[in-house]
Simulated scan of single mutants.
Amino acid sequence: MNLDALDDAVSESKPRTSGISDVMELEMSLVYANPHQPRKHFDPDSLVELAESIKSHGLIQPISVVRRTAGYMIIAGERRWRAHQIIGSVTIKAALVVKDESEIEEMALIENIQRDDLTDYEIAMAVVRLWETGMYPQKKDLARAISKPLSFVSKAFSVVNKLDPEIRADIEENKRDTGLSVLEELSRVEPEKQREVYDRYNAGEIKRDEFKEAAKPKAEKPIEPKKIKVQREVAVTQGDGRLLFGGDDFHRFFREVEPWKKYKITIEEIV
Rank of each mutant, 00 (worst) to 15 (best):
D141A: 08
K155Y: 05
K148Q: 10
L142R: 02
Y136D: 00
V159Q: 00
K221L: 10
N202C: 12
L142S: 01
R68S: 08
T133E: 10
W131D: 04
V160M: 05
I74F: 04
Q231E: 14
V65K: 02
H57M: 14
Q194R: 08
S53W: 03
A33R: 14
F152L: 03
Q114L: 14
I223R: 15
G179H: 11
K140Q: 11
K264Y: 07
D43W: 03
K40S: 03
E256W: 13
K93Q: 10
V197W: 01
E213I: 13
P149L: 07
E233K: 14
A108N: 01
E101N: 15
A214E: 08
S29P: 00
K99D: 01
L244I: 13
I60F: 12
V90P: 01
I206W: 05
L163N: 02
N34T: 01
I87D: 04
K227H: 10
E173V: 04
T133K: 06
N161S: 13
L150K: 09
T91I: 04
S89Q: 07
E220V: 14
E106Y: 05
A169E: 09
K14A: 07
E106T: 10
I223Y: 09
V128L: 07
P222W: 06
M24A: 12
H36P: 02
A235Y: 14
V128P: 01
L183E: 01
L180C: 05
K229A: 06
V90K: 09
W260Q: 14
D240R: 15
Q37C: 08
H41F: 15
S102I: 13
D141N: 11
P15N: 09
T266N: 07
Q238K: 12
N174Q: 15
I171D: 00
E205K: 15
M125Q: 05
Q114D: 08
L47G: 04
E172A: 06
V234R: 11
G204E: 07
D199S: 12
L109S: 08
S13A: 11
I123A: 07
M24C: 11
P165T: 07
L59I: 04
I92P: 01
D117C: 07
R255E: 12
E122N: 04
Q114T: 13
N161L: 11
D177T: 14
Q138S: 13
D117N: 15
A235T: 12
L183S: 04
